[in-house]
Amino acid sequence: MKKVGLYFGTFNPIHIGHLVIANHMVEFSDLDEVWFIITPQSPFKTKLSLLDNNHRYQMVFEAVQDYPKLKPSKIEFDLPQPNYTINTLLYLEEQYGAEYGFSLIMGEDNLKSFHKWKNYEAILEHYSIYVYPRISDGKAENRFEGHSKIMKVDAPIMEISSTFIRNEHKKGKNIKPLLPAPVWKYMDEMNFYR
């Protein structure tokens, strides 16, 4: 059974920080693959600057072409919205449960609000969570410290955000080094975030 880490996000746009973390997870943990689960709309975010689902999928597709262990996924596009992680996990189990074992990938800053997620207890009961470090204003809550299903992975700290990229691009700043080359090319050709 293949071990697959699910990396959820809007990827608006995907940037080198996302790639570094995902690649680190497949190379330096027991995960066989990482699937980028492109989220149509997060229950915690507004949709104001969110590009169309298919454009964000295309950028993730372009970004991972040279990384055979990284895969783009549009699995959430057809699920009822707003969607929650638990629904996606149940759907994936139903579709692929015999072939794959699924885990979540999240930044340690997300542990602060993980207890607010829908059915977080069920997620913790049935799925492992791989946590990568983030720089944050405060120390992450110890609510899940030492939990047997939570593995901290000593991945590089990547403090690049899609919001920063969008905002600075709109101001005319050169953000090209923060994006995989094919993502920059697609974004520039489509005139996104200007």
Rank of each mutant, 00 (worst) to 15 (best):
V64Q: 06
L104N: 05
D188K: 14
W117L: 07
K47N: 15
K185R: 14
T88C: 14
I86C: 11
E93P: 06
I175L: 15
Y67R: 05
V60P: 08
Q58W: 05
L92M: 13
K3S: 02
M59N: 02
L90D: 04
L6W: 02
H126F: 08
I150T: 01
S162T: 00
I123C: 10
R194K: 11
E27P: 02
K112H: 14
I123H: 06
K112V: 13
F28Q: 10
F114I: 12
P40M: 08
D52A: 08
K173I: 07
L19M: 14
N167W: 00
N174S: 09
P13Y: 00
K185W: 04
R134D: 09
P43H: 05
E125L: 09
K2Y: 08
D30L: 06
N191A: 13
F36K: 06
Y7K: 03
S128E: 15
K185C: 03
L6Q: 04
N23C: 03
D66F: 09
G146H: 02
W35R: 11
Y7T: 02
L70N: 06
P80H: 11
K176E: 12
Q41V: 04
S103F: 09
M59V: 03
I16C: 12
E108N: 14
P40R: 09
G107S: 11
W35Y: 13
P72L: 05
T88S: 15
E99G: 12
L179I: 06
H169Q: 04
N87T: 07
R166F: 00
E168C: 02
V34M: 11
F28P: 07
F144S: 03
S29F: 00
P40T: 05
T88H: 13
P182R: 10
K2V: 05
G172I: 00
D188Y: 12
M59C: 03
G17Q: 03
Y96G: 15
N167M: 05
A63G: 06
Q95S: 07
T163L: 04
R56D: 06
Q65M: 13
F36C: 09
Y84F: 15
L178Q: 02
A155V: 04
T10C: 11
P156Y: 08
D154G: 01
H115M: 06
D32K: 02
F44I: 06
F44E: 09
S42W: 01
P177W: 04
N119G: 01
K2W: 03
Q65R: 15
A155S: 08
E94D: 14
E27C: 10
K71F: 07
F61W: 12
S162I: 03
K173T: 06
E141N: 00
Y193C: 06
P180L: 10
T85A: 12
S162G: 12
D66Q: 15
A122I: 13
A181K: 07
N53S: 09
K45L: 08
T85F: 03
E27G: 07
N12F: 01
D32H: 10
D137S: 15
E168L: 09
E121V: 12
P68N: 07
D30K: 03
Y127H: 11
F192S: 12
N119C: 06
K171W: 00
I16S: 09
D52H: 10
G9F: 00
E108R: 10
L70V: 09
H18I: 02
S162A: 15
I37M: 15
K176S: 12
N110H: 15
P72H: 03
A98I: 04
E108W: 01
Y67T: 04
N110S: 14
P156H: 05
F164D: 15
Y84S: 05
